[in-house]
Structures are given as C-alpha cells and as structure tokens.
Nucleic acid binder design. Sequence first.
DNA 1: ACCATTACATACCGAACGGTATGGATGTGT
DNA 2: ACACATCCATACCGTTCGGTATGTAATGGT
Lengths: 202, 202
Amino acid sequence: MVAMDAKQPDLTRDKLLRAAFGEIHRQGFQAASIANILADTGFTKGALYHHFPTKQALGLAVIEEVIYGYLDGLIFKALGESDRPVETLLEIISISGAQTDRESICLGCPLNNLMQEMSPLDEAFKDCLNAILINWKGAVEQALLRGKEQRVIRSDVDCGAAALFVVSAWEGCVGTAKNLQSAEAYGLCMLQLHGFVSSLMI
Amino acid sequence: MVAMDAKQPDLTRDKLLRAAFGEIHRQGFQAASIANILADTGFTKGALYHHFPTKQALGLAVIEEVIYGYLDGLIFKALGESDRPVETLLEIISISGAQTDRESICLGCPLNNLMQEMSPLDEAFKDCLNAILINWKGAVEQALLRGKEQRVIRSDVDCGAAALFVVSAWEGCVGTAKNLQSAEAYGLCMLQLHGFVSSLMI
DNA sequence: ACCATTACATACCGAACGGTATGGATGTGT
DNA sequence: ACACATCCATACCGTTCGGTATGTAATGGT
C-alpha cells in the first residue's frame, strides 16, 4: 500500500453517503431502501449501521453534506463572492434554465423533493432542510441588497420578499418541469423568472 | 328507511375516498397506510378492495375525483366563467395568499405533493397529475389571452410561458410556505406573484 | 319467493422493511 | 507483542405492508 489519500473508513462512509443520496433522489426518503443502498455499494448492514445509527441519521447526513455541499458550490458561493451579484444571479438562472439535462429534470431538485415529502412528518428533517432554504433565500437577498447599493436594483424593492419568491418560483419551476418531464418547459419557466428578476432592476 | 339521497355503496366509496385523500395528504401516497384509512372509516379490507382493485387505483381515484374536483371548483371554473379573467386571477391569488389557514399551509398542495413524489415512479400517476397541471396552466393561459383581447394584458406577453410560470411559482410558494410552516411567508410570496401578473398588464 | 349479484367482513399470506446481536478481521497505541 | 478500539460481515428478529381467498349478509330483478 503505497499511498492512500483518505482513510478507509471515511471512504466507506462516502460511498454509502453517495449511494444513499442517489437512492433517496430517485425514490424519496421513505421509499429509499437500505437494501438497495447496500446492493449498490457492495457493503452490508454492519458497515452502514456502524457509520450511521439510524436511517434518519443517514438521511440527515445526506442533506447536510451532499445536498448542502452541492448547492453551496453551485449557487451560494457564486453569489457571495461575485462583485456583480445581480448579474451573477441572472447568469445562474439563465444557465440553469438552458443546460439542465433531462435526467436532472425528471428527478427534480433533491432539496425540494425532501422538503415536500419530509417536512410535515419529521421535525429534524424540517429544521435541517429549512436551514438550507433560508440560506438560499439569504444568499439571493444579499445579492439583491448589494444590487441596491450598486444602484442596479430599484430602491423600492422588498428584497426579502423578492428573494423568497425567487427561491420559491425556482423550486416551482423545477417541480413542474419534473412532472412535465420537459427540459424545454423548464427553460421557458426559468426565462420568466429571469424576467421577474430583471423587472426589479432600474 | 324514509329517504336516502345516495345509495349505500356509493356512500361507502365516498367515505373511503375522503379518508384516503386525508391520509395521502398527510403522509404521501407511498407512506399512506391502507390500515389507517380503514381505521378512520371503520370499514375493512373487503370493502376497500371491493371498490378499488389496488392501492394505485385508489390513489388515482383520489386525484381524479377529490383533488381535481377541488381545484376545478376553486380555480378553473372561476377563471373560465369570469368576464374579467385577469381581475379574477389576481383576486384568487390575493385571497389565497391572505386567508389560507395554517393547517393547509403545513400540508401543502395535494397536487404538488403527489407530483413531486409519484411522477418519477409511476407513469399512470404522472399522466393523471399532468392532466390537471396542464388544465390549470391552460385556464391561466386562457385568462391571459382573454386579457389581451380586453387590452388589459400587454400584447407582447407570451401567455403560454407566463401561465406556466404562474402555476409553477404558485406551487413553489405553497411548497416553501409548507416547509417554513408560515402563512405569513405564503402571503408575502403570493404578493410577489400578484406583482408578477400585474407586471404583465398595460 | 327465488336466485344472482352486490357489498362487505374475516382470516391469512409472502415479501420487504428497519434494526440488532454477535462475531471476526484489521489496524493502533503502548 | 499484547490489549483494545475500530470496522465491517452474517444471521436473525418483529413489524408492517399490500393483497387475496373465502364466507356471509343484504339487495334487487323477475
């Protein structure tokens, strides 16, 4: 064994986590089968229940690590680090609407899927998911507020409400596109959202 | 027995259907327990499986009869029969945003819940739900088109895309409000949607 | 009045589920 | 080299699930 960038146990945990994410993304959390996750990874129950005490803990770990990590890398950081946040927001919306592949469309947003399924049933899930949702809304709100300072967003805009709506509509667009199984519908829908954000500008 | 407005079997079917709707609305379809539905109604499996061949058929009946009936009575008919459809659309959005009770917020839109959960898993569900979604979108689109004729909607508006976005954002607002468990957030969000529709007007 | 169909109740089935108890292998610090 | 915790595999458990087979009471047409 010459080199091993990560320790074996962590690798196992990662594989389980990724497989769990896929299974949950496809089936939803409740319908997600532990047996399927194990079959995908080749591990057994001993491994899984060593790293995660319950199925719920596994689900929460998927949310906090995989899902949050994805959105953070794709949206939150980009908005926070941009010098022209409004422009960046519009770009993200445009790009997402244009180049989201069919499979992602059909499976929907992992965050939204879990929110719709689990929030009324499990408080831990609700809190965990809401934290991400509020983070998302906050990132958009900060982008709009900074846009105000830069005089590209109208001064009469309620940035908090607008940000909440942008995130809501965003999720809504993913949701309907998922049902229609149409990337084209998603593009059309996101174009309207683009128009809404533009309408907030000077 | 002096009078009986409905036949006994139909009454049984209705009770089962309503109980099934409630259970599905609370738990989702897959997690909805046949046993719970039977416990709620006092019937047994013999009754349920006499009226519905499978759980899937029960779910589809809930969609086609209960859910569609609800949306049709609340939205589709109102839009179709109105002389000033755009005004009516804005009214529905305003009223919905203002007076939706907390319980409805927390459980979310039954249509959206089922779409997110079932569309990728079951084609029959997908088709059934999409039919309602397209109906909804069509009703809004017709309202906007008639608004164009009445010269209250700008002539450059893409009514199809706008209608798709309105429905998407609508569902999105319900979704986020459901997670935040906040009727106030729903009101704020729907106010923004109201603003979007208004921005389509002359 | 008779018979067939409808409308339910009861008891039961196989499968899949999440979770656990136990045991062995593999490092790891001392 | 020894003790010990970490890591994972195997076998098993109780429960719940959707669905079915069978039986029986009510109903409705003739």
